[in-house]
Amino acid sequence: MSLSPSSGIGRYYKHSAKIIRFVRLGCTNRPFYHVVVMERRKNQHQPVIEQVGTYDPMPNQKNERLVSFNFERIRYWLGRGAHLSTPTAELLGIAGFLPIHPRTYMTAWRNRQKVAEDGTIEAKDPVEA
């Protein structure tokens, strides 16, 4: 059986908890995240079961943050009872796939408050891994 292009080499245990989470790739001072499905108990740099997306937290030249999701596989894994890490849940909320995560509302509210206080825009990264 041929593997799908995103399949990792992580072993799949039927009854262990799976989680959809970020893996920090990229290098020093230049974060880049893969959204992967892996066993919950494992360290992020261990082999993953499948990659289901990417997230580039640094804005590009046109001032946009790029996110990509393999929604079909995410739906599948959520149906299999996979857990979600908070940053992933936030991103999926921003993407309109899930309801907006409470933490996103919190950051939005705090940012607005800050702007009202000193009039400067010093927003933090909304999705912190």
């Binding site: 292009p5 946009e64 943050r65 999701f69 393999n70 079909e72 309109g96 509210w109 607005r112 909304p126």
Partner: peptide, 23 residues
């Protein structure tokens, strides 16, 4: 426009572009 959520305004300093990469 898909949805409009004013409670989210200012949640980020840049916009997010989300792509579906389903095979």
């Amino acid at each position: 426009i898909i949805s409009n959520d004013s409670a989210l305004s200012g949640f980020s300093d840049t916009k997010y572009v989300i792509t579906d990469i389903t095979y």
